[in-house]
Measured scan of single mutants.
Amino acid sequence: VTTYKLVINGKTLKGETTTKAVDAETSEKAFKQYANDNGVDGVWTYDDATKTFTVTEMV
């Protein structure tokens, strides 16, 4: 189990959250659901070296 981080650069929501998951794909699903639940829709990137997802909304 690995800890993954999500950085949110939204128009109205900014911040970070973490989750523990067995792999990046599992954490990505959880993070995308979290973003969707909070009305964040944007461009996703992933940095495997830091286990960090970033979602950026276009303004």
Rank of each mutant, 00 (worst) to 15 (best):
Val1Glu: 14
Val1Trp: 14
Val1His: 10
Val1Asp: 11
Val1Gln: 13
Val1Lys: 12
Thr2Leu: 10
Thr2Arg: 10
Thr2His: 14
Thr2Gln: 13
Thr2Ser: 11
Thr3Trp: 11
Thr3Phe: 07
Thr3Leu: 13
Thr3Tyr: 07
Tyr4Glu: 04
Tyr4Asp: 04
Lys5Met: 07
Lys5Cys: 09
Lys5Gly: 02
Lys5Ile: 12
Lys5Gln: 05
Leu6Cys: 06
Leu6Met: 04
Leu6Glu: 03
Leu6Val: 03
Leu6Asn: 02
Leu6Ser: 02
Val7Leu: 09
Val7Thr: 04
Val7Glu: 04
Val7Gln: 05
Val7Gly: 00
Val7Trp: 04
Val7Met: 06
Val7Phe: 06
Ile8His: 02
Ile8Glu: 02
Ile8Gly: 00
Ile8Phe: 06
Ile8Asp: 01
Ile8Thr: 02
Ile8Cys: 06
Ile8Lys: 00
Asn9Gly: 03
Asn9Tyr: 13
Asn9Thr: 06
Asn9Phe: 12
Gly10Lys: 04
Gly10Trp: 06
Gly10Ser: 12
Gly10Thr: 15
Lys11Gln: 11
Lys11Asp: 07
Lys11His: 12
Lys11Phe: 12
Lys11Ser: 11
Lys11Pro: 09
Thr12Val: 11
Thr12Ile: 12
Leu13Met: 12
Leu13Cys: 15
Leu13Val: 13
Leu13Lys: 09
Lys14Glu: 05
Lys14Asn: 09
Lys14Gln: 12
Lys14Ser: 10
Gly15Asn: 08
Gly15Ile: 15
Gly15Gln: 11
Gly15Tyr: 15
Gly15Trp: 15
Gly15Pro: 04
Gly15His: 13
Glu16His: 10
Glu16Tyr: 13
Glu16Ile: 14
Thr17Tyr: 15
Thr17Ser: 08
Thr18Trp: 15
Thr18Met: 10
Thr18Val: 08
Thr19Tyr: 15
Thr19Met: 15
Thr19Asp: 05
Thr19Ser: 07
Lys20Asp: 14
Lys20Phe: 13
Lys20Ala: 11
Lys20Thr: 14
Lys20Ile: 14
Lys20Met: 14
Lys20Asn: 13
Ala21Asn: 05
Ala21Cys: 08
Ala21Asp: 04
Ala21Lys: 03
Ala21Leu: 03
Ala21Met: 04
Ala21Gln: 07
Ala21Ile: 03
Val22Gln: 10
Asp23Met: 03
Asp23Pro: 01
Ala24Ile: 12
Ala24Gly: 04
Ala24Gln: 13
Ala24Val: 13
Glu25Gln: 13
Glu25Asn: 09
Glu25Cys: 13
Thr26Gly: 06
Thr26Lys: 06
Thr26His: 10
Ser27Trp: 04
Ser27Thr: 05
Ser27Val: 14
Ser27Gly: 12
Ser27Ala: 15
Ser27Glu: 01
Glu28Thr: 04
Glu28Phe: 15
Glu28Asn: 04
Glu28Asp: 04
Glu28Met: 14
Glu28Gln: 11
Glu28Tyr: 15
Glu28Ser: 07
Lys29Cys: 06
Lys29Ile: 11
Lys29Leu: 10
Lys29Arg: 12
Lys29His: 08
Ala30Asp: 06
Ala30Cys: 13
Ala30Phe: 15
Ala30Leu: 15
Ala30Thr: 14
Ala30Tyr: 15
Ala30Lys: 11
Ala30Trp: 15
Ala30Pro: 00
Phe31Pro: 00
Phe31Asp: 01
Phe31Val: 02
Phe31Ile: 02
Phe31Ser: 01
Lys32Glu: 03
Lys32Gln: 06
Gln33Ala: 11
Gln33Trp: 05
Gln33Glu: 10
Gln33Ile: 09
Gln33Pro: 00
Tyr34Pro: 00
Tyr34Thr: 02
Tyr34Trp: 15
Ala35His: 02
Ala35Gly: 02
Ala35Met: 09
Ala35Arg: 01
Ala35Phe: 03
Asn36Met: 15
Asn36Glu: 13
Asn36Lys: 15
Asn36Ser: 14
Asp37Ile: 10
Asp37Ser: 09
Asn38Leu: 15
Asn38Gly: 04
Asn38Ser: 08
Asn38Ile: 15
Asn38Gln: 13
Asn38Trp: 14
Asn38Met: 15
Gly39Lys: 07
Gly39Pro: 01
Gly39Ala: 06
Val40Asn: 01
Val40Thr: 03
Val40Pro: 01
Val40Glu: 01
Val40Cys: 04
Asp41Arg: 12
Asp41Lys: 14
Asp41Glu: 13
Asp41Ala: 11
Gly42Phe: 03
Gly42Lys: 00
Gly42Arg: 00
Gly42Met: 02
Val43Phe: 11
Val43Pro: 02
Val43Gln: 09
Val43Asp: 08
Val43Thr: 10
Trp44Arg: 00
Trp44Cys: 01
Trp44Asp: 00
Trp44Leu: 02
Trp44Tyr: 01
Thr45Trp: 07
Thr45Val: 08
Thr45Asp: 09
Thr45Cys: 09
Thr45Gly: 05
Thr45Ile: 06
Tyr46Gln: 00
Tyr46Arg: 00
Tyr46Val: 00
Tyr46Pro: 00
Tyr46Trp: 03
Tyr46Glu: 00
Tyr46Gly: 01
Tyr46Ala: 00
Tyr46Lys: 00
Asp47Leu: 03
Asp47Met: 03
Asp47Ala: 03
Asp47Glu: 06
Asp47Arg: 02
Asp48Ile: 07
Asp48Cys: 05
Asp48Lys: 08
Asp48Arg: 06
Asp48Asn: 08
Ala49Phe: 10
Ala49Asn: 10
Ala49Asp: 11
Ala49Trp: 08
Thr50Phe: 04
Thr50Gly: 03
Lys51Ser: 05
Lys51Asn: 07
Lys51Gly: 04
Lys51Met: 06
Lys51Phe: 09
Thr52Val: 05
Thr52Met: 04
Thr52Cys: 03
Thr52Phe: 01
Thr52Pro: 00
Thr52Gln: 04
Thr52Asp: 00
Thr52Leu: 03
Phe53Ala: 01
Thr54Val: 07
Thr54Met: 07
Thr54Asn: 04
Thr54Ser: 05
Thr54Ile: 08
Thr54Glu: 05
Thr54Cys: 05
Val55Lys: 01
Val55Tyr: 02
Val55Phe: 03
Val55Ser: 00
Val55Gly: 01
Val55Trp: 01
Thr56Tyr: 07
Thr56Ser: 08
Thr56Asp: 09
Thr56Trp: 08
Thr56Met: 06
Glu57Arg: 03
Glu57Pro: 07
Glu57Cys: 06
Glu57Gln: 08
Glu57Gly: 04
Glu57Asn: 05
Met58Asn: 10
Val59Asp: 14
Val59His: 12
Val59Gln: 12
Val59Met: 12
Val59Ser: 13
Val59Asn: 12
Val59Glu: 14
Val59Ala: 13
